[in-house]
Simulated assay, not measured.
Amino acid sequence: MRRPTCLLFVLCLAACLLAGCAPQSEAPQPTATPAPTHTPVEEEPAEPAYETLEGINPYTGLPQGENYPAGKRGVAVMINNVKGALPQSGINSADLLYEMVTEGGVTRLMAVYRDYANMPVVGPIRSARDQHVQLMLPLECLYAHIGGSTYANVLLDVFHCPGYRSLDGKYRNFYWIDQERRKTMDQDYCVYTDGPTLAAALEKFGLDTDFGYEMPQTFRFVGADEPARVLEDGVAKQVYLRFSGYTDCEFRYDETTGRYAKWEFGEPQVDEGDGGAQYQADNLFILFTEITKYPDGVLSQVDLSGQGYGYYFCDGRYERVRWMKGAASSPLRILRLDGTEEDVLVNPGQSYIAMVGLDQFEYFRIDDQPVE
């Protein structure tokens, strides 16, 4: 592809991501048991209309605590998730953990922490992808990554993130290479950071760590002093999903902790920095959308511009939901299935969010049963 043509394509991509563009069609009115679909939204979705809660961590809905970093941004860190990069560090401490395919069926994680200064050792750090950037932007957080795809870099440039909110690999002070791992692994599997290292780099390079108004809530949370909401559609002690022929995962509900523990590649997904403890989350959101290839035939294009169906799991139960987004900076919203614009009430806690291709829905299982 000649350079002018390539540049034109990249600029068109940026415009589409900003506008959430797609062919216009009537939004579906979901039924009680919808088939998984993805539909463009008629217009840019409205901001969430629910009343925000005071005194909570906006990423988890949990009480802020004594050392809450009021007025400071959180941080999102890209984490390698190929088999050879395991085990990872820092995933158990993430307030939010996003997972999506990037290329070749491989998924990448984006771990989000409300308090960057007290973040544990996190890694191995990997490069930015535009689908993750679109979920990072509405969180108003900082962004740590090593390099990025053309599409991700265009999007970061459009939102003026480099040198403002985005720490790329060129800011060498924000990460280090684990030399012991480097003896036997590729360097892409050996890059790490932690709170003190990141905080020092942010100060050195003068990135914008301050947030001048109330941090937006990720979800519409149940009040921390209120009873947990019981999900409506049934019991879910085991959840299986497949991202591709390369990557699948399973969650099993742990009655002792009241959380979902994750398996990946047939093994427990563990946090090396947390003494090898298995990753667990309070809330699971498994959301289905159209995933295709960009024109290069390699990178995955995850369509976040419209709306689709998904499943919310908590406390060993589940319910069907809708998701809606739009432009790159618009928040991801989890809505009731009845076709209203009412955001689902989410129980406080750490959340795992997966965007999964519609072509993988046939493999999706709840308690070993196909989902109709």
Rank of each mutant, 00 (worst) to 15 (best):
I177Y: 04
Q238L: 11
G169Y: 12
D210Q: 14
C249S: 04
L231E: 03
A236F: 15
Y171P: 08
F174I: 04
V222L: 08
I177C: 01
Y246F: 15
K183R: 03
Q187F: 14
P227W: 06
I177G: 00
G163S: 06
L207I: 03
S166Y: 08
V235N: 09
K170L: 10
T218K: 11
F174L: 06
Q217H: 15
F243V: 00
F205C: 06
W176F: 07
S244A: 02
R182C: 13
F174G: 05
R172M: 13
G212E: 02
Y164T: 14
D194F: 05
D168T: 10
G223K: 11
D208E: 10
A201G: 07
R220W: 15
A201I: 10
G223T: 08
F251C: 02
M215G: 01
T193F: 11
R172L: 12
E250M: 14
Y246M: 15
Q187H: 13
E226S: 10
G245Q: 03
Q238R: 15
R165Y: 13
L198R: 05
T247D: 14
G206F: 06
T193G: 08
L202V: 11
V239D: 06
E214K: 15
F221N: 00
M215D: 02
L167D: 04
W176E: 01
Y164W: 14
N173L: 11
E226M: 11
V235Y: 12
P216E: 01
R252F: 15
V191I: 12
E250N: 13
G223C: 05
Y246K: 15
K183T: 03
L167V: 09
C249T: 05
Y213H: 12
Y240A: 10
G234H: 04
R220D: 08
Y192A: 03
A224I: 11
Y253M: 11
S166D: 13
E214P: 10
G169C: 07
L198H: 04
V191N: 07
T209D: 01
F205D: 09
Y246G: 05
W176A: 01
M185E: 14
D248H: 14
E226C: 12
R220I: 06
R242G: 03
A201E: 07
T197W: 05
V191G: 00
S166T: 12
G169K: 11
G245L: 02
Y213L: 03
R242L: 06
G169A: 07
E180M: 11
P216A: 00
D186K: 00
Y164P: 11
D210T: 15
D194R: 09
V222T: 09
D225F: 11
T197V: 10
L207A: 00
D233I: 00
M185L: 15
D186T: 05
D210E: 15
T184F: 14
M185D: 14
L198N: 01
V239E: 03
S244I: 06
R165T: 04
R165V: 07
R252P: 10
W176H: 01
A201M: 13
E203W: 07
A199C: 04
E203C: 03
W176L: 04
G206A: 05
K237A: 07
L198A: 02
Y240M: 14
E180R: 01
D208Q: 13
Y189W: 13
V222Q: 05
A201V: 12
Q179Y: 01
F221Q: 02
E250C: 12
V230H: 07
G163Q: 00
D194Q: 09
G212S: 13
R165C: 08
A224R: 14
T197R: 09
L241D: 08
